[in-house]
Design a protein around this nucleic acid. Structure first.
Lengths: 127, 127
DNA sequence: CTTGACCTTGACGTTGGCGTCAAGGGTTAG
DNA sequence: CTAACCCTTGACGCCAACGTCAAGGTCAAG
């Protein structure tokens, strides 16, 4: 399939696909007229990239997963490098959550001080 | 005082001070030779801006606080516009925390699936 | 006079993941 | 032949809060 069809099926823009290629995450065969040609495995790669991006991974974070898939594994996280990224991202997310909780507490305290009459439900972001 | 001294006392760069001025958050008198001249109230403004930035506010968010101080109030959050920003930022932070908690859960689930043997302490970011 | 520490404005660089033209070639249906 | 839709590469735009360099003016000390 060509880039337009892959884009539609993956739910991304053609611009994004070319960008992934430029970043070395996607490789396309070329037809005689210069058009990029993709197959089902490429769709799988793009799907993997997208799902990682939506949970806050960067393209660099996604690289090990892509390479893992290209190495023939069924899942992108079947390789130790990918698992290591999971571990690192969990630590990063935990850090960000801690930072946000601290900020929330500070802002809430300032808010309470500035507006003593304002009722404020505590811990507005419990899951 | 001139820009260098204000920068040192406020713990910011001179570039930052000029940027705040460009954004209309800081106004400087000019000496006859064109140098910016500041007083203690300007130091207070910059201090306010900095403390807001460190808890994740943007310069736009800080604007009402600065205007409140310039209006003669002792505290930047003594005005209803500032309090409204507090309210909005709390909602934003809560949103971000919720998003991160959801991401953490997703990543943790993927991690656990990819690496069944790996022990994983749950809720690593409790405050 | 010269050094050196200060100041001025202007303008480009940074970061990520693309969006959005621009200018052109390929392919096919009518 | 032409419309219409696909594709190509190249390159600037975006957003925030400055960092950094350029090129030059100001002022006090030695």
């Amino acid at each position: 399939m060509r880039i337009g069809e892959l884009a539609r099926r993956a739910g991304v823009s053609t611009r994004a696909l070319r960008y992934y290629e430029q970043q070395g995450l996607l490789a396309a065969r070329r037809a005689t007229n210069g058009y990029r040609e993709y197959d089902e495995s490429d769709l799988k790669l793009v799907t993997e990239i997208r799902s990682l991006l939506t949970v806050g991974f960067t393209l660099e974070d996604a690289r090990p997963f892509v390479e893992c898939l290209r190495a023939g594994n069924r899942s992108g996280d079947a390789c130790p490098e990918s698992v290591e990224v999971y571990r690192r991202k969990l630590a990063e997310i935990d850090d960000q959550i801690r930072t946000l909780l601290a900020r929330r507490a500070e802002v809430a305290a300032q808010f309470a001080e500035a507006c003593p009459g304002c009722a404020l439900r505590t811990g507005g972001a419990r899951s």
